[in-house]
């Protein structure tokens, strides 16, 4: 049984017509479904209010209702669907406006696609990049090779280290980051390389620098010596009378470059006295007269 229309509108039975209209308008504004698109109950309330006003808004009908000639259900008329039912429907809405959020469309992410009305409801996004840190031995970085990075979940990442990799360089492994969403591409793994220093080699740019200790005898007479390089031992001629600090260049024995060439290795000679004192040498030096050398040293003394 429908409720009492006077009660529905909240007016007294002897209320004047204007009061009834005023009451209807106040309630209709409040409960009209199109002014409350998110409120499911609004439709029920609004139907009640419309029905009540249908009976009481017209003075003749109201009189007949008051006399009991018609009852509240007599005024029933099928209420149409409301605008909100069409506006929210899937088929699209020729009146729909994106002006209410045009300021949120600012980039090419999936949200902007949806807001522009282009994207489907599928979330599709590139996966996030993941950052790692990898320490390498000096020679592994210079010569390159394969390294394995073990992740906390137990899986293993194979990393190809390019020859000549530098300290602080970031290697990017495409597609090895977090998986994408909704079929989007995976992100990348970004690996920051830290190169451990070497006991004897130093890298400067594409060149390798190393100190070479040589014997007094080799320094005076010259010699063929073995010199370490990143790719192994190399034979080198030390010229006679090579003083400490002499720098000798081994071309192409430095760091590999992307184009295929290599930098150079610079060998700095360090003349070493024998480890233990040699009595014969001491005896010889004691009676040796380095006249010419002495004069030279005077001349160069600051």
């Amino acid at each position: 049984m429908p409720a009492d229309p006077y009660q529905t509108l909240g007016v007294k039975k002897d209320a004047p017509q204007e009061a009834i209209q005023k009451a209807y308008r106040r309630l209709a504004k409040k409960f009209h479904p199109d002014l409350n698109p998110g409120n499911k109950q609004a439709e029920e309330r609004f139907k009640e209010i419309s029905l009540a006003y249908d009976l009481l808004g017209d003075p003749d009908k109201r009189a007949r209702f008051d006399r009991g000639e018609i009852d509240a259900s007599g005024a029933e008329r099928p209420r149409q669907r409301f605008y909100r039912d069409f506006a929210d429907a899937d088929g699209g809405n020729p009146y729909s406006s994106s002006a209410g959020f045009a300021d949120f469309i600012n980039s090419d992410d999936f949200l902007s696609d949806i807001f522009r009305g282009r994207g489907s409801a599928n979330l599709r996004m590139r996966g996030q990049d993941v950052h790692y840190r990898l320490e390498l031995d000096f020679l592994d970085a210079i010569n390159g090779g394969k390294q394995q990075l073990t992740l906390p979940d137990g899986s293993v990442l194979d990393v190809a280290i390019p020859p000549g990799t530098r300290d602080g360089q970031i290697l990017r492994l495409r597609g090895k980051g977090r998986p994408g969403i909704g079929g989007g591409p995976s992100g990348d793994a970004l690996i920051e390389i830290h190169v451990r220093p070497h006991r004897i080699f130093t890298r400067k740019g594409d060149d390798i620098h190393v100190d070479l200790p040589i014997t007094l005898r080799d320094a005076v007479l010259g010699a063929k010596v073995k010199v370490p390089t990143p790719s192994g031992e190399v034979s080198m001629t030390v010229p006679r009378w090579a003083n400490t600090g002499t720098v000798l260049r081994l071309k192409g024995q430095g760091v590999p470059r992307p184009g295929g060439s290599r930098g150079d290795e610079y060998v700095t000679v360090k003349v070493m006295l024998p480890e233990k004192p040699d009595p014969e040498l001491e005896k010889f030096i004691a009676q040796w007269q380095p006249l010419a050398a002495e004069r030279e040293r005077e001349a160069t003394r600051l």
Binding site: L35, D88, Y95, S96, S97, A121
Partner: peptide, 26 residues
Amino acid sequence: VILNLVDQLHGLRRALHEVLVAVRAQ
């Protein structure tokens, strides 16, 4: 004035709904 606001409202509802559907599918 009211029609314009209602249209913007429905535009927003549609956009919000699409985002919710997408997020809930994850």
